[in-house]
């Protein structure tokens, strides 16, 4: 690996000023499971960093907290293990626990952070479809203070985000899911583990009796960024939670996706998977919703 200057700030403000000073030649480092690989392989989407600003000493970035009033706050530096094993996440944000719980190996999950997963902006990022269905907001800190962005507006393309070079993703905020909400995330991979999603699907349904009051469907690895399947959501809204509704929504989700053919799968197969997986996950989410109601 080519060398670089290494900085280990202890506060967010310090980290931001280091990024600002570097004027674009620095990169923040979180768990390293994406960035270090890209640096080793000279495969960064940005110029090789002259400075690495490691975030591992920034205690403000850690922690996962839940309250019934404010919902879930996840520090960008929380690891996949922190997220996937957190009792409130498992209980109230099952889709997110499922997304964080499939990233690489245990080793990866102990290193990789949710902020890193989001900021690396891979179309296949496993935590992003769940964040989308929970209407998460990204809290961003820069030299001029904080700003908040709906997670859907955070992604600009593969590896590209709304962050300026001197900004950091500080935390993710997820509102409390309404009573009667069930959600789930699943991805398809050739191996059972240690793989990148060929397709990832997250859904969230809020049921009132048998009617769908609120629906979210989000897809990974089928477009330049993870995306919400808007026409699938429209096909669910206000409809009965039935197999027929789910089939229509699944069909719509496949239409919403714009997959490419690459080394991991063809566009056809991806679109087919979106349909199959969306239908299955909607049924699962509906079951879960009924369980919570």
């Amino acid at each position: 690996m080519r060398t670089f200057e290494y900085k280990a700030p202890e506060t967010i403000d310090e980290a931001v000023s280091l990024l600002k000073e570097a004027g674009g030649s620095a990169r923040p480092l979180a768990g390293g499971t994406d960035l270090v690989v890209q640096m080793k392989e000279r495969a960064t989407r940005f110029p090789y960093p002259a400075t690495i600003v490691s975030l591992d000493r920034v205690s403000e970035l850690r922690g996962v907290d839940f309250s019934e009033t404010d919902g879930l706050r996840i520090g960008a530096g929380a690891t996949m293990t922190d997220v996937a094993t957190h009792p409130a996440v498992r209980e109230r944000y099952a889709a997110l626990a499922e997304g964080a719980g499939v990233v690489g190996s245990l080793q990866t999950m102990n290193m990789a952070t949710i902020g890193g997963n989001v900021c690396n902006a891979a179309p296949s990022a496993d935590t992003v479809p769940p964040l989308l269905v929970y209407d998460a907001k990204a809290v961003i800190v820069g030299p001029n203070g904080r700003r908040t962005l709906p997670i859907a507006e955070f992604f600009r393309g593969p590896g590209e985000t709304a962050l300026e070079s001197d900004e950091l993703l500080a935390e993710l905020r997820l509102p409390v899911p309404a009573t009667g909400t069930g959600a789930a995330y699943q991805r398809n991979t050739p191996r059972k583990q240690m793989d990148i999603a060929v397709v990832g699907v997250a859904v969230a349904l809020t049921l009132s009796g048998d009617a769908i009051e609120h629906a979210r469907v989000a897809l990974g690895a089928v477009a330049p960024t993870p995306l919400r399947a808007m026409s699938a959501e429209a096909a669910l809204q206000g409809q009965p939670a039935s197999e027929e509704t789910f089939a229509k929504a699944a069909e719509a989700a496949a239409q919403d996706s714009t997959p490419i053919t690459d080394i991991r799968a063809s566009a056809d197969y991806r679109r087919h998977l979106v349909k199959v997986m969306t239908a299955r996950l909607l049924a699962e989410a509906a079951n879960r919703a009924k369980g919570t109601a």
């Binding site: 050739p190 583990q193 240690m194 793989d195 080394i263 991991r264």
Partner: peptide, 28 residues
């Protein structure tokens, strides 16, 4: 079930790593 060295139309290996050249894991 999994293993395959994949080349592009110019003869470049597309998966020179153990992520996309898939060896069976214990889960499999």
């Amino acid at each position: 079930l999994w293993e395959e060295m994949r080349y592009d139309e110019d003869g470049r290996l597309l998966n020179p790593n153990l992520l996309d050249y898939r060896l069976p894991t214990s889960r499999d």
